[in-house]
Nucleic acid binder design. Structure first.
Lengths: 287, 287
DNA sequence: CAATAATAGAGAAAATTATTTACATACGGA
DNA sequence: TCCGTATGTAAATAATTTTCTCTATTATTG
């Protein structure tokens, strides 16, 4: 378990001396990470053994181990631990958002199964036509992104956020086509229905969703993205970043499989944009 | 400067012993971070002083400092350092994408100016109506996201990716309204024109774009996002993640300013979704 | 309501371990 | 051959951990 989480758990049970050490941790994280045990003890006005005991209490093997674990915290946002309501300044919120985004990417990386990704990319690269489905602000954006990334590779792809349209497109799809559906919660029953319909018609389905959810079960290939949204209703974003990163990974894997074809198309698109809009070749593709 | 970057720079000039240490770093990062100098030296078949010298060469004050810096590395993906062309397997590409995303978030955090963010949030929170503009796959997505995030706070907001429509909307906008325009390259001349028109009409303009670019200059408030796209034409994504994180930060700051109003609206939207679609309250807002 | 035992907390000093410095040697190239 | 770099050995230093001890607090008992 992560060290600052443990500290949070112990919070009430700390002795006065230990509390002083914890205070320094929160108020001057940088110092704590770089200081030696003597410095830290001095500043907390405790003895070095107390610091060692503190580290042990938090599940570290030694003080050095403690420092390494501290430094490894996904992000230096120590304030992240304190009650949410305290994060008010722009600097605080920035730190908080970035910290959560980093953590989301980190956990995405750990959870992804390369074999599943390869399989998905194989299907996408070989598809005759690709349909990207997703509804609601978040998944609709993801579906749009899938289209945005894949058409650049020279693939035929469309996207829809409209349930009725999704069903019609599914009905129109043919064997050899691929449907990619995204649902953060995994409980989008309309998407489940589309997947079931697709299966009857031999259209391959790929889900980007919560592991074990109805949507995951209905798809022929499910890529699990399991990230807690946290309880702050204002802040549902980090999961979206993870989804975007996932799409990027899939697009890259697909690109590897289409290399020649894709570079050609991309170059044409790029030349078009460049000559049309800006003589400077540094123009970024797509804006 | 970041330690792995320095290592990359020194890469060619390392002596055989130092190279062995570097190899261990790449092949077993976890071990390197947790090992003592003796363990690390033993495994690299060098003497402890050589390890110290290696650390010094990389700009660290001591071996412990070296370990702390290693542990602080935004992402443990050591392969990130190795030449791009090696990334072929799903695991490689995943690591590569995630590492870049992490690096983008990291550099975004360092570059953002809290004062500018506060000023932008003040304007957004006080706006009568908000227009989000952006064209091309990437910025269009960003504009959509701005709408997606802000309407949840009870703000009046619309977005458009269509240049002609953008100009018409700008003409229709009134003092007290705010236009937020996104352009990754900063060279979207149509957006510049819209900003100029807005200024004449006393409509406040905020740009999310490259510092010092034409778009930045045309806006009344510019939030700089300066991230190199890198030279891999298949991989323009990490910048988008940074933009999304930025929008999240802005939305959060705005939410702080609208707290009561926003929580009410959000709760209504959420209740609506939950009762409509899924009895389970874990349903994520917006998908 | 003392008096005493038991226990947890904390530091001093010793012991251990890790790290650095200083010095010596070997090797490769000018 | 000579110089400089690379590396190791051993001594010195610094840091960390352990052990031991003291103190303060709380619980228990007469």
């Amino acid at each position: 378990m992560e060290i600052l989480t443990r500290l949070q758990q112990e919070a009430g049970r700390l002795s006065p001396s230990e509390q002083r050490i914890a205070d320094i941790l929160f108020s001057d994280f940088d110092f704590a990470v770089n200081a030696s045990i003597v410095d830290l003890a001095g500043r907390a006005e405790v003895s070095p053994p107390t610091v060692t005991r503190f580290a042990r209490r938090l599940g570290c093997q030694s003080f050095s181990d403690f420092k390494v674990q501290l430094a490894q915290t996904p992000f230096v946002g120590a304030r992240y631990l304190q009650p949410e309501t305290l994060a008010v300044s722009a600097a605080d919120i920035t730190e908080n958002v970035i910290a959560k985004a980093q953590a989301a990417l980190f956990s995405l990386h750990r959870a992804l199964d390369p074999a599943v990704l390869e399989a998905a990319a194989d299907r996408i690269a070989a598809a005759q036509m690709i349909y990207a489905f997703g509804s609601g602000g978040n998944s609709a954006m993801i579906a749009g992104e899938i289209q945005n990334r894949l058409f650049r590779l020279g693939l035929r792809v469309t996207s829809s956020a409209d349930h009725a349209l999704q069903l019609m497109m599914t009905a129109a799809a043919r064997p050899g086509d691929v449907i990619i559906g995204s649902s953060f919660s995994g409980r989008n029953t309309e998407l489940v229905r589309a997947f079931e319909l697709a299966r009857e018609d031999n259209v391959f389905t790929i889900a980007l969703t919560q592991t074990g959810s109805p949507v995951a079960k209905a798809a022929q290939l499910a890529i699990g993205v399991d990230l807690p949204e946290g309880n702050d209703i204002f802040r549902p974003t980090s999961t979206r970043l993870a989804y975007l990163a996932l799409i990027d990974i899939l697009a890259n894997l697909t690109a590897m499989r289409l290399k020649e074809q894709a570079t050609g198309t991309l170059r044409r698109i790029k030349r078009q944009l460049v000559t049309h809009r800006d003589p400077d070749d540094r123009q970024v593709l797509g804006d």
